[in-house]
Design a protein around this nucleic acid. Structure first.
Lengths: 217, 217
DNA sequence: TCCCGGAGATTTGTATACAGAAAATGCCCT
DNA sequence: AGGGCATTTTCTGTATACAAATCTCCGGGA
């Protein structure tokens, strides 16, 4: 929830939390999969106590949930739930585009352009992991341009939660190239100095993306 | 983080979490104040373990933070940070009003009206704790009308975090009455079936509120 | 007077044990 | 074969103990 500040409480618990979060975001632990405290304790070489703390924190952040039966599971979303999350994300992304367009500094613009250049390079190389990282950085750089950490955090949180589902829409290298090209269209609108055009451009960009995600999930 | 679903993990830990959250939101524990595990354990009649779990979860939600020195403290915000949070909340609230206006069912409208009636009754009784609860419920009922749990959660989260600061704007019973009356104006706009008027109405309502909050903090 | 170091007190993080609840398994009867 | 009940196993939540880290206070020296 915090950006960058002081080390959070507990080093083993924190290490476990961060590792699990990264693994879940990359799709390494599937939605619905159960996390076993005892096995995780063995895996990380600690007692159950810091494991429970890490799991509990991830649950408080909505990454895990107590589902049917025992144990924590990676939060699962039905298609309907996924669609609702995308709808919320859709609104937040449009808001971000509008605000970014209103507040854009030359420095922020330059950073967005650097991020887009990396997207293009990764797409041309047909390198999916690299593209996924670059794509996230591209969108995060737009959120940063708003210069409000709370808005940044909301948008970044959606990215974190939907990451595993969104990754599935890229079937081949052509998809990467098309995605990177759609960024160009989007940036034209964000840089147009018309915040309504920016918001509408982001709506279209995200709608196209979500339709592909729903098809792939 | 969740609205209403299954009982969250842990009954003592959960009870403590909920009680602390309510107390913090009502301003009963001040921003920056340190929470002592041992004393809380005595107070709630449990061991440190569930206390630690509750505190850890509240930290994951941004309500508490590990600050300078030992222990968890209620999260503190500078005026600048508070203003940024309000700016973000302002945008989210306007978005909520717009969507609620677009999606309002008769049932949802009725529930909002019940909540507003309770606000008025509490204001007329000059009962601050009752008013604070009623005011929260009023706003939550608007978010519920959107029927998207993710948007609900974002807006509710801001309410949770800003609760202690917002509570300080009510200096006397007249403030309660004025606040309840401003809800009438707001509802007229939300019920107007014009989502732009609804959004603008909420912007004004929240801006007035934030200016009073900044003055009081 | 001020600063530093050491000792004691306090707090934090974790490991382990225990009790209770939930789930799984096995057995018996229809 | 299927269902119900009893028993066993597994998991969850919590209490307690311990070690390490941090904080506070006091005394001594410059």
């Amino acid at each position: 929830m915090d950006g960058s500040e002081k080390p959070p409480r507990g080093s083993a618990a924190h290490r476990v939390e961060a590792a699990l979060l990264e693994e879940i975001a990359a799709g390494g632990i599937a939605a619905g999969e159960r996390l076993d405290e005892t096995r995780l304790a063995e895996r990380f070489g600690v007692s159950r106590t810091p494991i429970r703390e890490a799991l509990s924190r991830l649950a408080a952040q909505g990454v895990l949930e107590s589902g049917e039966g025992r144990g924590m599971r990676v939060a699962q979303y039905s298609r309907e739930e996924l669609a609702q999350m995308f709808e919320a994300m859709h609104e937040i992304e449009a808001l971000c585009a509008r605000l970014a367009s209103q507040r854009l500094t030359l420095l922020a613009r330059s950073q967005i352009e650097v991020a887009q250049a990396e997207c293009k390079a990764a797409a041309e190389a047909g390198d999916l992991p690299r593209y996924l990282r670059a794509n996230e950085e591209f969108h995060l750089s737009i959120y940063r341009a708003i210069e409000n950490p709370y808005i940044f955090e909301i948008a970044a949180d959606f990215r974190r939660r939907t990451g595993p589902f969104r990754a599935k829409k890229f079937a081949d290298a052509g998809d990467l190239v098309a995605s990177a090209e759609s960024h160009d269209d989007l940036l034209e609108k964000i840089f147009s100095a018309n915040s309504n055009i920016a918001a509408e451009g982001m709506r279209q960009h995200m709608a196209a993306s979500f339709l592909r995600v729903l098809a792939a999930n």
